[in-house]
Computed example of a mutant assay.
Amino acid sequence: MNKVDVMKDIDQLTDTYCVDCLVIRDLRKTRGKQGAHRFCIESCTVGEQLQFLGEEIMKISEK
């Protein structure tokens, strides 16, 4: 997997799931922007996939 493919995967995930996410919209109202972001990092399965892809980019960049 190369860096461009990983970036395309990240863009596809965010466009498909994150742009119109109702959970984020609701959490921003109740917990604020930081609370919604914390949910994405710690609890969201899409957030977990994005973290994995970010780690893959870091591995590619180190080479």
Rank of each mutant, 00 (worst) to 15 (best):
N2S: 08
N2L: 05
K3W: 02
V4Y: 11
V4M: 02
V4H: 10
V4T: 13
V6R: 06
V6S: 06
M7G: 00
M7Y: 15
D9H: 07
I10W: 05
I10T: 09
Q12D: 13
Q12R: 15
Q12G: 02
Q12V: 07
L13K: 15
L13Q: 11
T14A: 06
T16K: 09
T16P: 01
C18K: 13
V19M: 07
D20P: 00
C21S: 13
C21Q: 08
L22P: 05
L22F: 08
L22Q: 15
L22N: 12
V23R: 08
R25S: 10
D26N: 09
L27P: 04
R28Q: 14
T30E: 11
R31I: 01
R31V: 01
R31E: 11
G35V: 05
A36L: 02
H37N: 11
R38K: 14
R38F: 12
F39S: 12
F39H: 15
F39P: 04
I41H: 08
I41A: 01
I41F: 07
E42T: 13
E42D: 09
E42V: 10
E42Q: 14
E42H: 13
S43I: 00
S43K: 12
S43P: 00
T45Y: 03
T45R: 03
T45W: 01
V46W: 03
V46Y: 02
G47V: 03
E48M: 09
Q49K: 15
Q49V: 03
L50C: 03
L50A: 04
L53H: 05
L53T: 06
E56T: 14
I57M: 09
M58I: 08
K59F: 02
S61V: 02
S61F: 04
S61Q: 13
E62T: 03
K63F: 14
K63D: 08
